[in-house]
Design a protein around this nucleic acid. Structure first.
Lengths: 118, 118
DNA sequence: TGCCATACCTTGAACCACGAGGTATACCTC
DNA sequence: GAGGTATACCTCGTGGTTCAAGGTATGGCA
């Protein structure tokens, strides 16, 4: 049995990936959903109900700016990274690498912390 | 001021580390709390309110077995990994590496998924 | 005309880390 | 012997986050 609750290791990962992808080029929500799937080799699949709230929160925090665009009669909301968002991305990546490094350290049974980054 | 909400990347990490540390040797809750801090170089610090519920859940799932021990008048609950828990650890590590690999792939801007593991 | 893909959004539930609080015993100091 | 600190266990409530499901609307295709 052993119910698997939901210890997926995703937490802040959508935000990190959104910031990273938008750092390369401006995109709209629906595009981001599939860009994450494709770019991760179908390993990471976030639904729209997960992506949109993050976009709205990041925008209200000033980390994203949106611009309405109409292509072929279709209305899209295109997001781009602001300067503030770029700083947030750098901080998030640093935090991510710190966590990953620490977990790997435990998994490999290291006894003493090493100052060197990967 | 760009509130930092709580996008720590910890989710299932306590469970993973507990399983890993108990795979090496049996430990009790209070010991685990500080073993995680020390073993991760003070990067990961989980409170007791986070560790104990995980221990109880893992035990009720049959992944841990507990044994009461009295040392110097002090009562401790020592946990050890069961066969089921060992399988869970292997699965959790595989999931962890899969996630980390996928995120790194996106961060490095890979376009096509590669079949090879890291 | 009907169907699917595109494109956006909201809502509700479940889950998890975390802080704060609570109990009890041993050890050390005063 | 009185008081504080460290050990050792536990529970509760809160907040943030993922996620499935549902809802709306338009364009292209058969």
């Amino acid at each position: 049995m052993a119910k698997q609750t939901n210890p997926d290791f995703l937490n802040g990962v959508p935000e990190l990936l959104i910031l990273q992808l938008l750092a390369r080029r401006a995109m709209y929500g629906y595009e981001l959903v599939r860009a994450i799937e494709e770019s991760s080799g179908q390993v990471l699949e976030f639904g729209e109900g997960c992506i949109y709230p993050v976009l709205h929160r990041l925008e209200s925090d000033g980390d994203l700016a949106s611009r309405r665009e109409t292509v072929g009669g279709r209305s899209r909301v295109v997001y781009r990274l602001t300067a503030s968002g770029r700083k947030r991305l750098v901080a998030r990546i640093a935090a991510w690498r710190s966590i990953v490094g620490a977990v790997e350290q435990v998994l490999q049974g290291a006894k003493h912390g090493k100052p060197a980054v990967s």
